[in-house]
Amino acid sequence: MKNKGAPARISKWVVVAAVLVLLAITNLFSNAFMMLMDRDNFIPAQSSIFSFEPYEINQGSSNYWIYGQDRKNYYYFSYESPSPYLFISKSNDCPMFNRQDYTTWCTAQKGSAQ
């Protein structure tokens, strides 16, 4: 008689391994944790929970992102209610562009509220 439980056990381990790899190679866990800890945090509509990476975080009482990036864009959290963030393509032609100074973002676009 064959052991019918072995393939089910192997497939469970494959699923567990796939989830661990997904958590390790994406920003899913850190972004989900960030949004759970502070309800004002959000992922820009042009990005995703898998690829958005905050690279400057407010150090005050709230830990929201100030600047972030993904594969295509840079983002700045502007605090303005109709357009809470700005974004610009990583392949922009702005003279003196500085990813940590939104005033140098010559072609920035406004992101819409979620």
Rank of each mutant, 00 (worst) to 15 (best):
S61C: 07
E56F: 05
G5E: 09
K72D: 12
A113H: 11
N3F: 15
I57P: 00
Y85G: 03
Q46Y: 12
N98W: 05
A32F: 04
Y67H: 07
N41T: 08
F52A: 00
E56R: 04
S47T: 09
Q109Y: 09
E80C: 03
M37S: 13
G68H: 01
T26R: 07
R71Q: 14
A8E: 08
A8K: 12
T26E: 10
I57R: 02
A17H: 05
N27G: 08
V15N: 03
R99K: 15
R71I: 11
L36S: 09
N92H: 02
S51A: 06
F52Y: 04
N98I: 09
A24W: 11
I43D: 06
D93R: 06
N3A: 10
Y67M: 05
V15W: 08
D101R: 00
W13T: 08
A45S: 10
A108W: 07
A17S: 11
S62K: 10
T104L: 12
A24Y: 13
S112G: 11
D38W: 00
N98C: 03
Y55C: 06
S81M: 09
A8P: 03
K2C: 10
Y76R: 01
S78M: 06
K2W: 03
M35W: 02
V14I: 15
A113V: 14
D38P: 00
M34L: 11
P44H: 02
N73C: 11
I88S: 08
G68D: 00
A6H: 09
F87L: 08
N63D: 09
Y75F: 06
V19L: 11
A108N: 12
K12L: 15
S11N: 05
Q69E: 14
D70M: 05
S30A: 11
Y85L: 01
Y79G: 10
A6E: 12
T103P: 03
V16F: 13
P7S: 05
P7C: 07
T107V: 15
Y75M: 04
G5Y: 15
N98D: 15
L86N: 10
N58K: 03
M37H: 08
Q109N: 13
T103E: 07
K4Q: 00
K2Q: 02
N73P: 13
A8I: 13
S61F: 09
W65G: 03
N92I: 09
R39T: 14
S11E: 07
V16M: 05
D38Y: 03
A108F: 10
C94R: 01
N58A: 15
G60E: 02
M37L: 12
S61T: 14
A45G: 10
P7Q: 07
P54D: 04
Y64R: 01
